[in-house]
Design a protein around this nucleic acid. Sequence first.
DNA 1: AGGAGGATCTACT
DNA 2: GTAGATCCTCCTA
Length: 196
Amino acid sequence: MKWEREDFLGDAVTTAQKLIGAVIVRRSPEGVTAGRIVECEAYGETYKGHKDDGAHVFKGLTPRTRIIFGEGGHAYVYLIYGMYTCLNFVCGHAGESGSVLIRALEPLEGLDLMKKRRNQTKEKLLTSGPGRLTQAMGIDMTFYGMDLTGDTLYVESREDGPWPIEVTKRKNIDYATYGKDFPWRFLLKGNPYISK
DNA sequence: AGGAGGATCTACT
DNA sequence: GTAGATCCTCCTA
């Protein structure tokens, strides 16, 4: 089942859990690539009375975060460390500010194309990290704001679950006072493609 | 106008 | 295990 608009309109934490085991499909002129989501993180919600100070939206609406405050089902893509892009799914209704960072995929389709894009032949290293998977899927800053219910980049839930989910703290947000301890990182338990 | 810092990855030792 | 790449975004002045 392809995800429709409505599937993205819940809160980010619930949506992140629903996304584990789902499949991201990316269609391009070069071919189709697809991967199962085995790791993702929720951002921007409130937890036990604390706002998420680990989220980009914590400081409010800026040109960069504008899309996150819009309607769910769009892509929030940003550049990190000057070299890599990260892919997020915007959640919730317009005015809300939840999003889900896609951190790792298990490659399913278009492995040869992924290897070419990554200049990398080891399958373990194709999509096991947020910067790696965007490169393997051919996702760059031009995907900022893209509608995820179109034909270029979309999500499918297949009848092959349910998947065992593991929950941990989020990675690499030590600067956050409260947010660093929120249990909002979701993993497909035991999957070898989870990032380090 | 300037500067600090980042939801990362690779290549080396 | 550690350093270096590399540049956008946002805050300060």
